[in-house]
């Protein structure tokens, strides 16, 4: 099956030799809810803006539902609804309703149908009362909702949400989460960038971590955690162990001051066997503590190579 989005060896060097993307290759499957994580400047927005037609890649390509985002940009753009990070809204003379109706029109939707869709979205996002207001009269949260409604007005199969919950209150954040989950369940592919790692962990089935313009890891939150920072077991015995028992090499064992540390889980039979063996050798197990890393720990592990960033 074709990918919803396929970044293929994407490079982008801005004027002034700023290398924003260094060969990004990443596939987002159809129907997937993927999180794109990275520090500021990792290349998240640049990669999205290539799809949006706002950035010309230096080399490489992006396919959107099989359409080349550069050579077949009209077909590619029709597949995507983008909610940008910045509050970019046509505030010059259009009111909220007109912004949505015009946006639908750019995507080839006739005025009557566009008005119907705008009505529904304004009600859904709690903006109906503000439909005749200018953007400057909206609060930050309202603008964020309008941006999401704009991305949805042409009912695209793929949604790209660039930090959609940045700066919004808790209630709206939960509303956005519920809406995104429902849209994904209805079959839409969602690519989400966020700095809230708990948000990514909660919503995304798969996560891609970008660092310095390249992909450094991809997988489900659970996979990333177990692969990059596996569970750590701290086993305390009486008497203290003086040597590492045999047969535990695959768990990267080491002796700490007062415990034996293993990388592994209690659910692993070999770990259980090791514990039984200790008991059989007259060691009393005082405690077994399982330490599980969080996605944030994994993220920091993968992106903290540049120690000079925040000294």
């Amino acid at each position: 099956m074709e990918c919803a989005i396929s970044f293929q060896n994407l490079h982008k060097t801005y004027a002034g030799h700023v290398e924003a993307l260094k060969g990004l290759s990443l596939d987002v499957q159809r129907g997937e809810f993927m999180g794109l994580l990275g520090l500021n400047g990792a290349g998240k927005t640049t990669s999205i803006n290539v799809i949006a037609g706002l950035v010309r890649p230096t080399s490489g390509s992006v396919l959107v539902n099989g359409f080349d985002a550069i050579k077949q940009y009209r077909l590619a753009h029709a597949q995507v609804g983008i909610a940008p990070q910045e509050e970019v809204l046509d505030s010059s003379f259009l009111n909220v309703m007109q912004i949505l109706v015009y946006q639908a029109g750019y995507f080839g939707i006739a005025p009557r149908e566009a008005t119907k869709r705008a009505d529904a979205l304004l009600q859904e996002f709690g903006l109906w009362e503000k439909r005749k207001s200018n953007v400057v009269e909206l609060s930050g949260g309202m603008k964020r909702r309008l941006i999401l409604a704009k991305a949805l007005i042409h009912d695209p199969p793929i949604l790209i949400l660039d930090e959609p919950t940045a700066g919004v209150d808790v209630a709206l954040r939960h509303h956005i989460w519920e809406r995104m989950t429902a849209l994904n369940k209805a079959g839409k592919t969602i690519l989400l960038t966020t700095h809230y790692l708990e948000e990514a962990e909660q919503l995304c089935k798969r996560i891609a971590i970008l660092h310095n313009g390249g992909l450094v890891a991809t997988g489900s939150p659970h996979e990333l955690i177990t692969k990059i920072l596996p569970d750590q077991l701290e086993i305390r015995t009486d008497p203290l162990l003086k040597a590492i028992p045999e047969g535990l090499d695959k768990f990267s064992p080491h002796l700490d001051e007062d415990c034996l540390c293993l990388q592994g889980s209690l659910s692993d039979p070999q770990v259980m066997n090791a514990l039984v063996s200790l008991v059989q050798h007259s060691y009393k197990i005082i405690s077994v503590e399982q330490k599980r890393a969080r996605l944030e720990d994994v993220f920091l592990q993968l992106t903290s190579t540049d120690k000079t960033r925040y000294p």
């Binding site: 706002l54 753009h77 970019v88 046509d90 505030s91 010059s92 995507f107």
Partner: peptide, 18 residues
Amino acid sequence: LQSRLYGNIADVLSSPLA
């Protein structure tokens, strides 16, 4: 110029318009 400065030129650049 206004659409470029406000950023809303992205509305049409990201649309299927040629």
